[in-house]
């Protein structure tokens, strides 16, 4: 026994190293994005305030771009109303009873890592919960993975675990969208059945089959279609419609029927 103890003491450096590494690995593997919300919640309070200060300082740099994006969105919304007033009823002016939108500002963001997250300045006080979708004025942006009182952390679409259920706008064919890393402007289209031909320029939108995102939110424009011989599915690449490097104002989407949908044991398509 004494020998064993002496052995440990003699090599304490190595064993301490093993212990600390074991601790790190426990942290890494117990914190895939589903279980990590509790830790993110405690971190949010500290880092949230610091990030808020940082965002307040740098806000002026993005005002112009932010205003342009919001103006463009206003234009597209105006044009939608105009079309609908020609009809006898105004379907788009009836309030959406399924999805409720909460506006928030991005206070911290990254695009250059393999797994990216961004932080927004709204939290539980404003009605934000885990697993809500986040969209920008241009298209899909991410999903909330952790909330504290005043801040929330969202997993960006630029994440290795992000997989969005989308569809090809012209023929409603389901595909799935993921991010291959490195270039934050392009993503991968997967699971295209062989009988479907995709052309550069085809729009990919959300399918609405998950309870997280409503149908018809822009994901991106097809860049390239890759036919794979002797495989069941073809693949492709797309340009994301959202410029993740300049996320500024975003909308968090609350699904009012989420609890009810979950009772049907629908697994979220967003893995």
């Amino acid at each position: 026994m004494r020998n064993l103890l002496a052995f440990f003491l003699k090599n304490y450096f190595f064993f301490l190293f093993l212990m600390l590494e074991a601790l790190c690995f426990t942290l890494i593997f117990n914190n895939s994005y589903y279980q990590r919300s509790s830790i993110i919640r405690s971190t949010n309070r500290i880092t949230g305030n610091l990030n808020q200060v940082y965002a307040d300082i740098t806000e002026y740099l993005y005002l112009k771009k932010g205003n342009e994006l919001l103006a463009e969105e206003n234009v597209s919304l105006h044009s939608m109303i105009k079309v609908d007033t020609n009809l006898s009823c105004r379907p788009s002016l009836i309030q959406d009873t399924v999805f409720h939108y909460i506006c928030a500002k991005v206070i911290s963001n990254s695009v250059n890592r393999r797994n990216n997250y961004f932080m927004i300045n709204k939290g539980t006080v404003h009605g934000i919960e885990k697993d809500m979708g986040v969209i920008s004025t241009e298209g899909i942006a991410g999903i909330i993975v952790g909330v504290s009182e005043n801040f929330s952390t969202a997993m960006s679409l630029l994440h290795k675990d992000a997989r969005i259920s989308g569809k090809i706008k012209k023929n409603n064919q389901m595909v799935s969208i993921s991010w291959g890393g490195r270039n934050f402007r392009t993503g991968n289209i997967e699971d295209i059945p062989t009988h479907i031909q995709l052309y550069p320029g085809d729009t990919i939108i959300t399918s609405g089959h998950s309870h997280i995102f409503p149908e018809g939110i822009h994901i991106g424009i097809t860049e390239q279609f890759i036919e794979r011989q002797d495989q069941l599915f073809n693949t492709g690449t797309l340009w994301f419609s959202t410029d993740f490097s300049s996320l500024y104002y975003v909308y968090v989407i609350r699904n009012n029927f989420r609890e009810e949908l979950l009772q049907h044991n629908m697994t979220p398509i967003y893995e």
């Binding site: 190293f17 600390l20 590494e21 601790l23 790190c24 690995f25 426990t26 942290l27 890494i28 914190n31 990590r36 830790i39 993110i40 971190t43 500290i46 880092t47 610091l50 990254s110 890592r113 797994n115 997250y117 952390t153």
Partner: peptide, 24 residues
């Protein structure tokens, strides 16, 4: 090393990765 790594992790939302690398 552990403290340094974990502080970076806290801000980057990558719990444990920087800590593991810095301890190594």
């Amino acid at each position: 090393g552990f403290l340094l790594g974990i502080s970076i992790d806290y801000f980057s939302g990558t719990l444990g990765i920087h800590a593991a690398a810095t301890v190594f």
